[in-house]
């Protein structure tokens, strides 16, 4: 796949929960190598969109295509993850009892079958990759600590590190800077941009300063469908967008 090809393609995706439309004919196109920020008020359906892409939720109708011809609606979570779609959750979820190192080890791309992991030994290559990620996510010092003992920001970073370890083509990042200090937020923006050099990224975020810092195309979701799309300055001047953010 070359630059400019479509990586992710959502068309007319509708999800209802007991009659409530969480996603309403949502359409979204992501280019190969692109980074996209998705914003929208609480309950707009951002997390639900990620659920649909990663196979957690099946859409009632609509198409979800990855690459040219992979229909994501037919696959389950592990299959989608193995295709190269990684996800960071809104609430950081790492394996609390395990060390930072083991968390990354478990996330490393590789054979996921029990018959392999039962006898797997850590290779030099794996060690090198883990050390590299520790470096990138600034977790080298705490690598032998249990993930449960990390600060909130460190957990967020560990989860991003786990995403990197998966070596996905597409990263879905749900509210990565929630609960971070300003400095951490800034660093996260830098990190995401760096990641974006080799991978496509979808970031969901509320923090406007952060979104501005990313400086990418923005999609505004509201009530389950796209309200506006474009550069952040254009979008933030859109009266419809101002209405949903400030009007209530």
């Amino acid at each position: 796949m070359s630059e400019g090809d479509t990586l992710l393609y959502l068309d007319g995706v509708t999800v209802t929960f007991d009659g409530f439309r969480a996603l309403n004919a949502l359409s979204l196109v992501l280019e190969q190598g692109e980074m996209r920020a998705v914003i929208g008020p609480n309950g707009a359906g951002k997390t639900t969109m990620m659920d649909v892409i990663t196979g957690k939720t099946r859409p009632d109708t609509g198409k979800v295509m990855f690459g040219k011809d992979t229909d994501l609606t037919r696959l389950d979570e592990p299959a989608i993850a193995s295709l190269g779609i990684g996800r960071k959750f809104q609430k950081p979820t790492v394996f609390e009892p395990h060390t930072v190192w083991d968390n990354l080890l478990l996330a490393l791309a590789g054979d996921r079958a029990p018959r392999f992991t039962l006898f797997a030994r850590q290779t030099a290559d794996e060690k090198r990759r883990i050390e590299q990620i520790l470096e990138t996510t600034r977790l080298t010092d705490v690598r032998h600590r249990a993930a449960a003992d990390l600060s909130h920001g460190q957990k967020q970073w560990l989860e991003i590190g786990m995403l990197l370890a998966q070596e996905p083509q597409l990263l879905l990042v749900d509210e990565p800077v929630a609960g971070m200090t300003d400095a951490e937020t800034e660093q996260t923006a830098v990190l995401l941009r760096e990641i974006n050099r080799t991978r496509s990224v979808v970031v969901v975020e509320h923090d406007m300063a952060f979104v501005r810092a990313l400086d990418v195309k923005v999609t505004v979701l509201n009530e389950g469908s796209v309200l506006a799309e474009g550069p952040i300055d254009l979008v933030s001047d859109d009266p419809k967008v101002i209405e949903v953010y400030l009007g209530r």
Binding site: T54, K56, D76, E77, P78, A81, S82, G86, R87, F89, T93, V94, F95, E96, P97, H98, D102, L105, L106, A107, R112, P114, T117, L118, F119, A120, M162, Q166
Partner: peptide
């Protein structure tokens, strides 16, 4: 083993392991 580590991860946060493949 690594298998055991994954097992513990499954025990505590089953859904997360799925998104790791």
């Amino acid at each position: 083993s690594r298998f055991g580590k994954i097992l513990i991860a499954v025990r505590d946060t089953e859904s997360r392991t799925r998104f790791l493949g």
